[in-house]
C-alpha cells in the first residue's frame, strides 16, 4: 500500500475519534481561557470559596479550637514542667521572664497565622479561662504582669558601699550591684555636667530600677513586671516614709545605727508592697 492510500484509510477509520478529539480540544481551550483569565475565573470560584471561608470562620473554634487549645496547652505545660520544676525555687524571676517571652512569641505566632480568623482578645479570654481555677504553677502566668518588688538597696553616695538591703531571691552579690549602680550613676552625672541630671530610673528587660537620691545615701528599688499607677503610688508613699525614718535614726545616732537596724527598717516598710497591703 502506498502512503496516500494509507492516509485515506486512516481518515475513514478514525473519523469519529478525530471529531471527539477536536471537541475535547475546544473544551480544554475554553477551560484554559477561564482559568488563565482571572476575571472570568473569579465569579465562578468566589462563591464556593466564600462559602468555605464563612463556614470556617463560623466553625473554626469548634473545628480546630479544641485541637489548638490542647496542643498549645500541652506546649506551655511541657516547658513549664521542665523549666519551672528545675529552676523556680532558685530563680523564679528567670522563669517569669521565660514565660513572658514565650507568651509574647505565642501571641505573635497566633496573630500571624490566624490573623483575621478570630481575634487575639478572644484567645486572651480563653487563656484566662483555662488558668482561672488551676494549680500553683499556672499562677505564675497570671502573676506575670503584676509588678513586684525584687530588691531594695540603700547605698552610700560616692563610696557606693551597701548600707542595707532586702532581696526576694538572694541571687545577686549585693555589694557588687551597689558598686555597679553607683558607678553608673557617677557616669551619668559626668556625662551631663551642670548638676541637675541625676539618674532616676534604669530599665532592663523585665526590670525597672528606681533611684531616689538623698544627700548622704540613695535608695535603689528593683521592680519586675509592669509598673501600674497604683503600685507606683504605693511605692512613693513607702519610699517617703522609709526615708524619713532612716534620716531620723541615721542622723540622730550615726554611730549606733547598724546595718541590721537598717535592714529591719527596709523589711518593715517595703515588705508591705509584696504582701499586697
Amino acid at each position: 500500500m502506498d502512503k496516500q492510500k494509507f492516509e485515506v484509510l486512516k481518515d475513514i477509520l478514525f473519523e469519529d475519534a478525530r471529531k471527539r478529539n477536536e471537541e475535547l480540544d475546544n473544551k480544554v481551550k475554553a477551560i484554559d481561557e477561564i482559568i488563565s483569565d482571572r476575571a472570568k475565573l473569579e465569579p465562578r470560584i468566589a462563591p464556593i470559596l466564600e462559602d468555605q471561608v464563612h463556614y470556617l470562620e463560623k466553625n473554626f473554634p469548634t473545628l480546630f479550637g479544641a485541637a489548638i487549645t490542647a496542643s498549645i496547652r500541652k506546649q506551655i505545660k511541657d516547658s513549664q514542667d521542665e523549666v519551672v520544676d528545675a529552676l523556680y525555687p532558685i530563680i523564679g524571676k528567670m522563669i517569669k521572664k521565660y514565660i513572658s517571652l514565650e507568651l509574647a512569641r505565642l501571641s505573635e505566632r497566633i496573630d500571624r497565622q490566624l490573623d483575621r480568623a478570630f481575634s487575639w482578645e478572644g484567645w486572651i479570654r480563653r487563656i484566662k479561662a483555662w488558668f482561672g481555677g488551676v494549680d500553683e504553677r499556672d499562677l505564675i502566668m497570671t502573676e506575670l504582669a503584676q509588678p513586684e518588688l525584687e530588691e531594695v538597696f540603700v547605698i552610700q553616695q560616692e563610696s557606693g558601699l551597701l548600707m542595707g538591703s532586702y532581696s526576694k531571691h538572694q541571687t545577686l552579690d549585693q555589694d557588687m550591684v551597689a558598686g555597679m549602680l553607683t558607678a553608673i550613676k557617677t557616669f551619668v552625672k559626668e556625662a551631663f555636667p551642670g548638676g541637675y541630671q541625676e539618674l532616676e530610673t534604669i530599665e532592663y528587660e523585665n526590670y525597672k530600677i528606681i533611684i531616689n537620691n538623698l544627700k548622704s545615701f540613695y535608695v535603689a528599688v528593683v521592680i519586675s513586671g509592669n509598673m501600674n499607677t497604683d503600685f507606683k503610688m504605693k511605692l512613693d508613699d513607702i519610699m517617703t516614709d522609709f526615708e524619713q525614718q532612716v534620716m531620723e535614726k541615721y542622723l540622730g545616732d550615726k554611730e549606733n545605727f547598724s546595718e541590721d537596724q537598717l535592714t529591719e527598717l527596709i523589711k518593715a516598710n517595703f515588705g508591705k508592697l509584696n504582701n499586697g497591703e
Binding site: 560616692e158 557606693g160 557617677t186 552625672k189 559626668e190
Partner: peptide
C-alpha cells in the same frame, strides 16, 4: 570586704573624673 573599683586607665588626654575616686578608702 574590699569592693574593688577597676577604672579605665588614664592617658595624657583623658583623665578619670574625680567623682569616681570620691569615697575611696
Amino acid at each position: 570586704s574590699m569592693i574593688i573599683w577597676d577604672v579605665a586607665g588614664e592617658s595624657t588626654h583623658q583623665k578619670i573624673p574625680n567623682s569616681y575616686k570620691l569615697g575611696a578608702h
